[in-house]
Amino acid sequence: MSVQELPTEDRRAWMGLLARARPERLAALLPAPLPAHADLRAPEIGAVMVRGRVSASGAPFNLGEMTVTRCALRLTDCGTVGHAYVQGRDRDHARRAALVDALMQTGRAAALRAQVLDPLAAEEAAARGLRAAKAAATRVEFFTLVRGEDA
């Protein structure tokens, strides 16, 4: 199956999830031995310049860089190509993310989703929800003491 036939939104979602995952968590969900593969681009640590916008909506400006590791590989059995761009400097993280990206384009997608993506997504949602709930608890409720016209 070629890339063009895949629903891009779905692939964007799993690539993002894998990029944000903690390396040790991904390693635990996809333990060695890894499926046979050949590197197209061995994991490479680098930087991406993060841009912001003037006043949040105007012209782009360079805010600063972030570390990103990328990897591309091909599954040995079916030749499917997987790509990864993950946050940080962990080469194994990038390799595993590229492997999952490749496997998700094969018949093993459903199994991979249950084994790797669903747990990652659930844990991320729980962590985000907890942080948002802690922030919500610090939301200010104003009480009107005396209105000017009543005084």
Binding site: E44, G46, V48, V50
Partner: peptide, 11 residues
């Protein structure tokens, strides 16, 4: 020492 992989879209 890091190669530049690219630039992000504005956050």
């Amino acid at each position: 020492t890091l190669p530049r992989h690219g630039a992000s879209q504005p956050i």
